[in-house]
Computed example of a mutant assay.
Amino acid sequence: MADTRRSSMGRQAIDGWQEQDAYTPWRKLYCYLQRAGAVKSIKRGTHRRMRREAIAEIRREMP
């Protein structure tokens, strides 16, 4: 049976200092992440990038 797992499954690839700050416990110490919606907007961008990469990978695998 072939391995059906994609590389996007598992641990998230962090791309940039904002994502690194938002996904670590240090986010409680940074003042710019205490504003309403700051972490949510960073995580929304991360998830959007992950979905885009997964869709591109699926399209590459299709004949």
Score class of each variant (00 low, 15 high):
R52N: 09
A22S: 02
L33Y: 02
Q34T: 00
D21A: 15
S41K: 14
Q34P: 01
E57W: 03
M50Q: 14
L29A: 13
E53N: 08
I58S: 09
D21L: 09
T24L: 14
D21H: 11
A38I: 03
M62A: 15
G45P: 02
Y30C: 06
I42D: 00
Y32E: 10
R51L: 10
M62W: 14
K40A: 10
R44F: 08
R59C: 08
Y23K: 02
A36R: 15
R48N: 07
R35G: 10
R51E: 07
T46P: 00
T24V: 01
T46C: 09
R60Q: 15
G37R: 05
G37S: 09
K28N: 06
A36W: 09
M62P: 00
Y32K: 12
V39Q: 00
L29C: 01
I58D: 14
E61M: 15
G37Y: 03
I42V: 07
R49G: 01
R48W: 00
P25N: 07
A38D: 02
Y30E: 06
G45M: 05
G45Q: 12
R27H: 05
D21T: 04
T46S: 13
T46W: 03
L33M: 08
Y23E: 09
M50A: 11
R60D: 12
R60G: 05
R48H: 07
A54P: 00
Y23D: 07
Q34W: 04
R59P: 00
T46Y: 05
R35W: 04
K40E: 11
A38H: 02
K43V: 06
K40Q: 10
R49N: 01
L29D: 08
R49P: 04
T24H: 13
R27N: 01
A38C: 05
D21G: 08
R60V: 07
R51C: 08
M62S: 13
I58M: 12
Y32I: 01
K40L: 05
M62I: 12
R27D: 00
E61D: 13
R49D: 04
R60E: 15
Y32P: 00
Y23R: 05
A36L: 12
A36D: 10
C31P: 07
